[in-house]
């Protein structure tokens, strides 16, 4: 399963997928990874990405990748979130939200949800552009070099890898078709 998702990411980066779709997927993955699950914010954002032309495979893999660093980030997110939630001038605004059934379900009043949301949104645009830039660089400069590298060619042409390639090729084609 994990190998399949990574294969799909590899295919997406190396095929004619729009760079912005890949970059958007990475930015959303960062946001979704930072916000704790099981609240209305997370569910809404996740469902939203289903309707948008965001590369799902890239999003899934990067959610997993970013989640690896959450242990280090949680303390920071908690502090940021708590600081925002206790800003006196925002008290009335948050009180209104707290008394609204919809926003109550978003769990915005939790320090990590708020911290994750704010940090995620703040980093959304920079991550988008950074990702776009990196994918472009890869496609323009690195991809060709790797593809033409003799060692890579030798490895890729190994019978065992050819088998795997054929196997995942079917999966990738299917995935492309449903997109």
């Amino acid at each position: 399963m994990i190998v399949t998702w990574f294969a799909k990411v590899f295919v997406a980066i190396n095929s004619n997928k729009k760079t912005s779709q890949i970059a958007l997927a990475i930015a959303f993955a960062f946001l979704l990874a930072l916000i704790p699950k099981a609240n209305l914010f997370w569910i809404s954002l996740f469902v939203l990405t289903f309707f948008l032309k965001v590369n799902q495979a890239v999003e899934m893999v990067f959610i997993a990748v970013f989640s690896l660093f959450l242990d280090f980030l949680d303390t920071f997110l908690d502090k940021i979130g708590f600081a925002i939630l206790t800003v006196p001038s925002l008290g009335d605004f948050f009180t209104k939200l707290f008394n609204s059934p919809f926003f109550y379900m978003t769990k915005y009043y939790n320090s990590i949800v708020m911290g994750g949301l704010v940090v995620g949104l703040a980093m959304f645009v920079p991550i988008y552009f950074l990702s776009k830039y990196l994918v472009d660089i890869y496609r323009d400069k690195v991809r060709e070099k790797i593809a033409n590298n003799k060692f890579v060619k030798a490895v890729v042409n190994q019978p065992i890898l050819v088998g795997i390639k054929n196997k995942f090729g079917a999966a990738v084609r299917f995935y492309d078709n449903i997109r």
Binding site: D74, L77, F82, G115
Partner: peptide, 14 residues
Amino acid sequence: ILRAYGRDVTYPCV
């Protein structure tokens, strides 16, 4: 529990 829960800040409500 996969990660820290954080702190719930409560506001005045009925």
